[in-house]
Structures are given as structure tokens and as C-alpha cells.
């Protein structure tokens, strides 16, 4: 039994359409790529697709109501849904520091979610304890 994967390579602007045949967790044929980078891309995309996720979390007492966050490292693609739900449930209190850890171990991936920017507290706003 083999599975066929069709991918668009993102290694360069060329955007090769790569067709791979996979059998028992191994690529047994690859077509359409024009360079070695395409092969590496296909390898990663098929066996361990990873993504950095970026979103926002709610902030109390900040100059803005939300602060942008990112996963410090890429996380497995199939964890995105759970990670986004965890992020949606969080509220932090201003001030927020640059790269402050917002969630230490998002979706059990071992990767932390950090703030992408510092966010000051609103003048005359709620003071934190």
C-alpha cells in the first residue's frame, strides 16, 4: 500500500508542484521538484509538518485590549486547534514584557507561547497587585 501526497513547495518562489509516493513511512518516489530543497521540504511536510502559530490574547489594563503572541518554536500542525483554544481562554494583565511567557507548554508540545511585543499598562488604568 502506498499513499500519494501532492504538495506545493515553498522553498523558493518557483512553487513546484511535488508529487510523492509514500510507503511504510518512506518516500519511494518524488516528482515535480526542481531541486534538493524540494525533496527536503516534502520530507518534512509529509512526516512532521510543523507550524509557528500566531494569535492574540486578551489583556487587562493595557494600552490595547489584546497582545500578539506566538509559539516560540514551530509546533506539530495537528496541535494547532488545541493550541488556539488554549490561547483563546487566557487573559493576561498589563504590563506585558517582550517575549514574556504567556503559556509555558502549549497543547502539551513542550513549546511555550510568548508575547511578540511589550505592552504598557494604561495610564490611570487598573493597577496590578
Amino acid at each position: 500500500m502506498s499513499t500519494i501526497y501532492e504538495l506545493t513547495c515553498i522553498a523558493c518562489p518557483m512553487g513546484c508542484q511535488i508529487k510523492t509516493k509514500v510507503q511504510q513511512d518512506k518516500i519511494i518516489s518524488i516528482k515535480g521538484n526542481s531541486c534538493k530543497r524540494g525533496e527536503l521540504y516534502a520530507q518534512d511536510e509529509i512526516f512532521r509538518p510543523m507550524r509557528v502559530i500566531t494569535s492574540t490574547v486578551r489583556v487587562q489594563g493595557g494600552v490595547l485590549p489584546v497582545v500578539p503572541v506566538r509559539t516560540a518554536e514551530p509546533i506539530p500542525k495537528d496541535k494547532i486547534g488545541v493550541a488556539l483554544q488554549e490561547i483563546a481562554c487566557i487573559t493576561v494583565t498589563a504590563p506585558v514584557k517582550f517575549h514574556q511567557v504567556i503559556v509555558p507548554n502549549i497543547a502539551d508540545t513542550g513549546v511555550s507561547v510568548v508575547a511578540s511585543r511589550p505592552l504598557a499598562a494604561k495610564e490611570g488604568g487598573e493597577k496590578t497587585a
Binding site: 509557528v52 500566531t54 494569535s55 492574540t56 500578539p68 503572541v69 506566538r70 517582550f98 511578540s116 511585543r117 511589550p118
Partner: peptide, 22 residues
């Protein structure tokens, strides 16, 4: 622009917009 992908050429890393600005 809170997504990542900024600075790949200049810093060889994928920063978010706010990180690049920072």
C-alpha cells in the same frame, strides 16, 4: 502584522511583525 515570516533574509529567522519592529 502579528504573523511570522519577517526578517528571513536579513536575520535568517522568522520574526513576527511586532518582533521585527521591536
Amino acid at each position: 502584522c502579528i504573523h511570522n515570516g519577517f526578517g528571513l533574509h536579513l536575520f535568517k529567522e522568522e520574526l513576527t511583525g511586532p518582533e521585527y519592529a521591536y
